[in-house]
Amino acid sequence: MTLLVEGAELSIGRARVLSGVSVALRPGTVTALVGPNGAGKTSLLRIMSGEIAPASGAVRVDSRPLQDLSPQQQARCRSVMTQHPRMAFDYIVEEVLEMAWIHGCRERFRRAAMTIALDCDIRQLVGRKFNTLSGGERQRVQFARALLQIWRHREDATEPRYLLLDEPTASLDVAHELLLLRITRKISERNIGVLLILHDLNLAARFASHVILLANGAVQAAGSPEAVFTNNVLSQAYGARMHVERHERLGRLLIHTD
């Protein structure tokens, strides 16, 4: 029960984007994908989502090759939140949420949408036009949409699902950033594997159970935050002197630059 990438190679044009990347996303974990700009984080996420196929290497979901699943089958077990452009037409937020509803039954949609809208603090946005929202508000709506897609009617549903988020906190204020990350941790307990691309290493250290550090198209380190976030590893990957220390009172790692 894993979303697995094995030895993925990818070039875009002449540039080599990923070379020999193997990663695993397990249900029940929050895995942070971190690394400097251009490291290949988004490309890796696109490979994991099935949007692009690696030039060589394999992607397996629950031990089945990803390309054997139809788009509908893939959509039922994983949802993706991309960094988002505008929409050409004036859809209402409600309709944008409904686009993710692949489970039939409108009545259930209303109930699920209401629950998630309350969780994500977008209830007051539901009747607004999507295009009139601010960047952060749109991001919250997209996050809610991704949650709705892998919604199950039963709270205790345990089938493995995957949630892939590309910089979900990029334009969020501090409070909503925390809210979103808390939700990801909570839903990971329902046998959902959450992959987060994050730039803020402190948030990664605080909320992720696993960290994958990507640089120059290759995995530099992977494991628990304590194992990955060390002075040497980070300094080398980012090309800047970085310090990691453990804050005893907060009980978590603090990472800062010189």
């Binding site: 099935g50 993706v80 991309t82 944008v96 692949i102």
Partner: peptide
Amino acid sequence: LDLLQLGEPEAFHLGVDV
């Protein structure tokens, strides 16, 4: 067509054979 308004990758993520 509605799902395509989110973008082609996003429509695929939602199960559309784009």
